[in-house]
């Protein structure tokens, strides 16, 4: 049963994944949407030469805030888990 489920789910995901890849390949190749606007206007908006940093810390600064909180949480959790517990470890 387990073996069957493993192969079954892997097959399903693989096949659909390949199918999706194939249909993704026919999506328009030029980058447009948000990315184009951001790259075009980065310097006059942010005065930063590195467009990646400009995106990461300005237009998506809130996400970066969240990401740094992820790191903070992970480290706090490690500190909490690896602390000396009540009865020693």
């Amino acid at each position: 049963m387990k073996k069957f489920m493993t192969f079954f789910s892997l097959t399903v995901i693989l096949v659909t994944g390949l199918f999706v890849m194939k249909s993704m390949a026919v999506l328009p190749a030029t980058y447009d949407g948000v990315a184009k606007i951001l790259v075009d206007t980065t310097i006059e908006r942010t005065r930063a030469l590195n467009a990646v940093t400009a995106v990461v810390f300005d237009s998506r600064g809130y996400d970066t805030l969240g990401e740094s909180f992820v790191l903070f949480t992970a480290i706090s959790c490690s500190a909490a888990i690896l602390r000396k517990g009540l009865k020693g470890r």
């Binding site: 942010t46 005065r47 930063a48 940093t53 810390f57």
Partner: peptide, 15 residues
Amino acid sequence: AAGELFSSGTIFWMN
């Protein structure tokens, strides 16, 4: 101005 070390506002500081 863009290109100087102290530029780009809070991006620098957040960084």
